[in-house]
């Protein structure tokens, strides 16, 4: 059965939302930073066992505060990927509040948190930092090397058909 689900990548600006999507959909990467204004929407179908699911991925502009996002962007979302930049403290310092906000305002959705740009920082060092800040992290990723990118979207898709 083919079904389609809307997923949205959220998080501060410059954390790599567009890059993760680009890696997942086009398997490419650029070091240049081009700010996303508003929203770009792409889709990709993934196969899970005998199922197929089309992810309609909303790549929205970065915001440091979920509350400042236009609610229409999030309308009808089935899954969130909250992305932060492992090298920039400002992008994860309020992580638990942000997660809380999503969980209370969009209770029926799936949510994964991703520490991106892990290619830029020693993973063990970052794990220590994450412990310090009590960050709840589901995946460590790099849009640059492709590490875990496929896995993140596939796992979210799996959760969506459950």
């Amino acid at each position: 059965m083919l079904s389609s689900k809307k997923i949205v990548l959220v998080g501060h600006f410059g954390v790599g939302k567009s890059s993760l999507i680009r890696r997942f959909v086009k398997n490419s990467f650029s070091d240049d930073y081009l700010v996303t204004v508003g929203v770009h929407i792409v889709k990709k179908t993934v196969h899970i066992d005998n199922d197929e699911i089309t992810l309609i991925i909303w790549d929205i502009e970065g915001k440091e505060d979920m509350q400042k996002l236009r609610p229409s962007f999030l309308l009808g979302t089935s899954g969130f990927i909250y992305v932060f930049d492992a090298t920039r403290e400002s992008t994860y310092i309020n992580l638990s509040d942000e997660i809380n906000y999503i969980e209370t305002h969009y209770p029926k959705t799936n949510l994964l948190t991703v520490a991106n740009k892990i290619d830029l920082i020693e993973k063990n060092i970052f794990i220590k930092i994450a412990e310090n800040y009590k960050l709840k992290i589901d995946y460590y990723s790099s849009a640059k090397t492709g590490e875990n990118v496929e896995l993140i979207f596939n796992d979210l898709a799996k959760n969506l058909i459950k």
């Binding site: 389609s4 929203v39 929407i41 889709k43 309609i56 502009e61 229409s72 962007f73 309308l75 009808g76």
Partner: peptide
């Protein structure tokens, strides 16, 4: 026309509702 519309088609049965989407790249 565009995947954008796939994500709003579920709003169709909901009568008399208006939604505004800003700065959508199509």
């Amino acid at each position: 026309l565009h995947p954008f519309f796939e994500t709003i088609s579920h709003l169709l049965p909901d009568k008399n509702k208006e939604h505004v989407f800003h700065c959508v790249n199509l």
